[in-house]
Amino acid sequence: MHGLTIWTTAVFIIGDIAGGGVLALPRAVEDTGWIGFVLIVVFTLLSTYTAALIGKCWVIIQERYPEYQSHVPDPYPIMGEKTYGKTGRHLVTLTMNIYNFGSSVVYMVLAAGNIETLLNDVTKDISFCYWLMILTFILVPIICLGTPKDFWPIGVGATFSTAIACIFIVIQALKDNSHNKGTTVHSDVGIQKFSSAFGTMVFAVSGHSVFPTIITDMKKKEDFKIAAILGYGIVLMMYIPTAMSGYFVYGSNVDVNIIKSISAGPIAYVVEILVTLHLLLGFIIYMNPVCQQFEAKLGVPKEY
């Protein structure tokens, strides 16, 4: 049976959640103090638990309602309907699509801005707005690829681009640390900064709106719990070293985007390319649940 395995599911989970949030974590830890590292671990554990519950809910629905044994384009709204009726279905559909579409728009805007910066010396006449349209025309056909099992390389690319970017950030931070000579200072923790950092950390482990779509493509849906533990475990291995490098090396000088804090050079350039790649691939992952529902309304076969 063709479908996602535990590993490919974990890859999609990582590609879904480990993106722009990782770049803001060093600043978030700086704004909360050392307790920020504890919060990252706690939020990761809580998100793993809630992700496992989503998987368990879908398994229960398939056991009780045989009509959902095959692939469905709207698993999350179905969960809402079986729990709270039509009102629950409409509420879940509205909030999920707003979140997914909104996140996709943000990803596209950030990617267009990054490409404009990266290619500014070569394509000076192509503005941000034009890049936004160019990327849209390129990616729109790709979001019609079907379901996650049909475009698993997208998940692999999103995961590895972020993982390599994190490694390069830590390497450059260690290089920069050799020039600091122990002069790192930290800012005071305030309520406003702590609250903002709190939200950043929660956002960095979010992405549950895509999980039901991934679950429906698994060979064994009951294994999603294992995939969630594996995926979030790897994400934590990316987050902690990156956050530590920003906190201990740059301190109060760390930027909201860690890329702007590391020294300019080849590594910083490569990191920005990798982050841009993740944003483009993340756009496809976030838009897929929205597109599946839209295509189902139009009667488009899922094989398309």
Rank of each mutant, 00 (worst) to 15 (best):
L135F: 14
K219D: 13
I98A: 15
Y286L: 10
V42N: 08
T183A: 14
C129R: 09
K124E: 15
G207T: 07
V189A: 03
L281H: 01
C57Y: 06
L230M: 12
A264I: 14
L236R: 02
Y65P: 01
A296I: 01
G55N: 01
G20Y: 09
P141F: 14
T242G: 04
Y76P: 04
V270M: 12
I226T: 14
F198M: 13
V205W: 10
Y239H: 02
P212F: 12
V189H: 03
T93E: 08
A228G: 05
S206I: 01
G88Q: 12
A163T: 02
A228S: 15
I191Q: 08
Y239C: 00
E63A: 09
W152M: 07
T159P: 03
M238Q: 12
P241W: 12
L277A: 00
Y99R: 03
T159M: 12
G3N: 09
F211Q: 04
N253S: 13
H278M: 02
G231Q: 02
E222I: 13
L46V: 14
T242P: 08
K302Y: 15
G113V: 01
D255N: 15
Q62I: 05
I54Q: 11
T93S: 12
L230I: 10
P141Y: 14
K193P: 04
N97E: 14
D31C: 06
L39E: 12
Y247L: 09
F12E: 05
G80W: 09
V59M: 11
T242E: 09
V254H: 11
H208S: 05
I134H: 04
E272W: 00
T95R: 01
N120Q: 13
P141K: 13
V271Q: 00
V210I: 08
V249M: 03
P289G: 07
V109H: 09
N177S: 12
P212S: 11
I142L: 15
L46R: 07
C166H: 10
V92E: 03
G233R: 10
A264T: 12
W58R: 08
A228K: 11
G182P: 01
E81L: 04
Y84L: 15
D150C: 03
D223C: 01
Y68V: 01
P266Y: 12
V59L: 08
L53R: 11
G233M: 10
G55D: 01
S195R: 08
I54E: 07
F168G: 10
V122C: 02
I142T: 13
C166E: 08
F198H: 05
D16W: 01
N97Y: 06
T162R: 00
T213M: 11
E63P: 04
L280P: 00
G199N: 14
D121L: 14
G157S: 09
W7M: 10
A52E: 10
G21W: 02
S127N: 15
A52M: 15
